[in-house]
């Protein structure tokens, strides 16, 4: 307790908004890329994935933060993973009960939320060091930022790949859909394009680049060894 209270800064709006854009988990921190690319072939799938991730992120970070003084240091990563896996199992069964159709579309990627480095990364880097309220607020911000990024990708891919948005026809029937956009290569290319655009805007505004810190993501340091 002594360590954690010393560093505690007051809860500000910044804690919430940081995850939304400035430290956006996808565009800036490059965390949790697998679901980002795999399920964003339509807006609906992106939204569902985003909401599922928010739920797991908020619940697991809340629990990790509440238990942070009781979890022994040596087994903390394992504990976090088990906490996360519990909530993911919950989400998995909830989605199955609410909409089987959606469940079949998202497939194994709901269960793969367990290994989404965003969630484990936040548990390790933030929730294990900060108070309950702050962790929950920050996790919610991060989750919203993640969803925002998913929808940005899903929107472009669905619009170009099928000429639709949320199932509504946007372009006239003369529009030839770019099928490649809803196929795997489209995911990489659209994410790459968003990153280029964001880099360009950032460079024009501040004269320097957002440092997308490669290799540091997902590297949860200090697993018990």
């Amino acid at each position: 307790m002594t360590q954690t209270t010393k560093k505690e800064t007051p809860l500000t709006l910044d804690v919430f908004t940081a995850g939304l854009w400035k430290e956006n988990p996808v565009f800036v921190m490059m965390l949790g890329l697998c679901p980002v690319l795999a399920v964003t072939n339509s807006v609906l799938n992106s939204l569902a994935m985003g909401i599922a991730s928010i739920f797991v992120l908020v619940c697991s970070n809340a629990l990790v933060s509440a238990l942070r003084n009781f979890i022994p240091k040596q087994v903390r990563i394992t504990t976090y993973i088990i906490i996360i896996a519990t909530f993911v199992t919950l989400v998995d069964y909830i989605i199955q009960a609410v909409s089987l159709d959606l469940y079949n579309k998202l497939g194994a990627f709901i269960q793969l939320i367990v290994v989404n480095c965003l969630i484990l990364g936040r548990a390790e880097a933030y929730a294990s060091k900060n108070s309950f309220t702050k962790s929950v607020v920050s996790a919610f911000g991060m989750g919203l930022g993640f969803t925002l990024a998913l929808v940005m990708l899903g929107g472009v891919r669905e619009l170009l790949g099928a000429g639709q948005l949320l199932g509504y026809q946007i372009f006239s029937t003369n529009f030839e859909p770019w099928v490649v956009m809803i196929l795997p290569p489209g995911g990489f290319i659209v994410l790459g394009s968003w990153l280029l655009l964001i880099n360009y805007l950032e460079q024009r505004k501040t004269g320097k680049l957002i440092s997308q810190d490669e290799a540091s993501h997902c590297a949860v340091q200090g697993t018990p060894s």
Partner: peptide, 19 residues
């Protein structure tokens, strides 16, 4: 060019590989 540094270009490359 500057803006293609780090992850953006990797994603583009991966897209082409995937194609």
């Amino acid at each position: 060019p500057n803006i293609t540094q780090a992850a953006a270009l990797s994603m583009m490359l991966a897209g082409i590989l995937s194609l």
